[in-house]
Design a protein around this nucleic acid. Structure first.
Lengths: 147, 147
DNA sequence: CTGTTTTCGTTGACCTAGTCAACGACCTGA
DNA sequence: TCAGGTCGTTGACTAGGTCAACGAAAACAG
């Protein structure tokens, strides 16, 4: 337990801050009028086979109400559609429209470019390990087992 | 440029989210009535030799107004004091009170415990490398040089 | 089948964080 | 001395996140 613990939170905070700001700015310059949260939801809908508000909120580890609102905004823009679920009528199924898929492709390009800037000078293995450690840490926080 | 780029932002987001929530919850259970932002500022004031709003906002990479407000709250709680600066009267100098230092010590313990949970199962070198990569990435985003 | 409980999406109210623009006080340098 | 810049402060605004409640619908116990 050295100083690395002491500055850990600060490094994380600054990186997150820089990342969010970079994304927002890039979206603005590319005329993509989506918030970071909307993009996250859009990605989840596109990636899931049976996308529901509940499933998305779990995968994103965020509030259901938050997801509901983001989905509503995406639907207003015609990027996502709901269709009735014959199996469970409480839970409409979400799907990405072609327009949503096009926009998402552009977003992924932008994020990849930002990722390239962030990873500049790092080996790909380093980046992969970074992601692995991040996920490991998230798991460690989620399972609230005191050490 | 593999899939690691695609999920990078998501991993970062989830980790940050889990970290912030863990901190907030721990502060609540330990009856430390400070927001995460206030703690960050308190740490900065404690760590800097000549703490000013400007210096803190630069080190935290955040808005001056935000720092001003956080400092005001810390002063209301008697954790930080301002004293006049004879050299430049625009810029009062900030200092942590003994009460602030005590509270900060408790906060650091809590953060260290959270850090232990996050780092559980990881070698210390991994954590150090994680921080190093995070800082590197933050720098890469800050200097907006396209690659 | 009936009543209870649970799950799910939705909504409202609220809080923290971050952004942007302005202002007065003050320093700096011509 | 005075024009321009810096600093702290304030107000208004947006985004993100939290919590509690509600109605609809499923799941379950009897």
């Amino acid at each position: 337990m050295t100083d690395s613990q002491l500055i850990f939170g600060e490094s994380l905070h600054r990186l997150m801050h820089a990342y969010q700001r970079t994304m927002r700015e890039a979206f603005r310059t590319h005329a993509i009028e989506l918030s970071v949260a909307q993009v996250r939801v859009l990605k989840c809908v596109a990636g899931a086979k049976a996308a529901t508000v509940h499933a998305i909120s779990q995968r994103m580890d965020s509030d259901r109400g938050q997801v509901t609102r983001a989905v509503a905004q995406l639907r207003e823009r015609g990027l996502v559609v709901q269709r009735d679920n014959t199996v469970d009528r409480r839970v409409p199924l979400l799907a990405v429209t072609p327009a949503g898929r096009d926009l998402l492709a552009r977003v992924l390009d932008i994020q990849a470019a930002a990722g390239r800037r962030m990873a500049h000078g790092l080996a790909e293995a380093d980046v992969a390990q970074f992601v692995a450690i991040a996920d490991h840490m998230t798991d460690g926080l989620g399972n609230a087992a005191d050490g």
